[in-house]
């Protein structure tokens, strides 16, 4: 699908390629020695990530029909505030962007602008089958089909539409990933900006965004 191959996978400070998952090989199944104490960098990163994970701000942007389930999620039935997840009124003050379903091309432009205004670190949670493969609008002329080509998605929550419980599970996953330092979509976006930009420009015909707007 891509215009050009995604660039070389960038490395994290710890030397691990971005997005790689630990595999259950022999060396990870069995202890190889005494546990090493964390280095200073690692422990600082751990503390930072812990704080980031425990306090997520969801940007107030309901982009599709999935946003109707964000109401129950935020209110008394499935209160998300007990996990430290609150709403962020503006892009500048939010850390999580929920793409709640299908994205029309017109919205994609606004979403990109909003996403790039969010300060790093930031994460994208995509709801519903529409963001995965177009869902039931696979043949619609005005929606994008695979969100991952335009924005780096950290967590997908599938379903049509996903129930609030599924959303909570998705958020828990995101928190765990942040704590382990694996939710690095934003680094990927920075490093492969050309690839993402080319894809975005392909669908957005009247491109008038600034080259990089954060």
């Amino acid at each position: 699908m891509g215009v050009e191959e995604k660039g070389k996978v960038p490395l994290l400070p710890s030397g691990v390629p971005v997005g790689s998952k630990p595999h259950a090989t022999d060396s990870t199944l069995f202890a190889q020695g005494r546990p090493k104490p964390l280095s200073l960098d690692e422990s600082v990163a751990f503390i930072k990530n812990w704080f980031r994970a425990q306090s997520l701000n969801v940007m107030a942007y309901g982009t599709g029909c999935g946003s109707i389930e964000l109401g129950p999620l935020g209110t008394s039935r499935f209160d998300m505030e007990r996990f430290g997840i609150t709403g962020g009124p503006t892009p500048r003050q939010s850390s999580v962007l929920i793409i709640s379903g299908y994205l029309s091309v017109k919205t994609l432009k606004r979403v990109i602008r909003s996403y790039e205004q969010m300060p790093n670190p930031r994460w994208v949670v995509a709801l519903g089958s529409c963001t995965i493969n177009g869902g039931m609008y696979w043949d619609s002329y005005s929606t994008i089909k695979i969100l991952d080509q335009y924005l780096p998605v950290d967590v997908y929550v599938n379903g049509c539409m996903p129930r609030p419980e599924a959303l909570i599970a998705g958020f828990k996953d995101l928190m765990d990933m942040i704590k382990r330092g694996e939710a690095n979509g934003y680094i990927e976006y920075q490093n492969n900006l050309d690839w993402y930009r080319a894809n975005q420009r392909k669908v957005i015909k009247d491109w008038n965004l600034p080259e990089y707007s954060w």
């Binding site: 029309s104 609008y137 005005s142």
Partner: peptide, 11 residues
């Protein structure tokens, strides 16, 4: 408007 347009009538 237009942010949510999916073209139902056409689909």
């Amino acid at each position: 408007v237009g942010y949510l347009h999916r073209g139902f009538e056409k689909l």
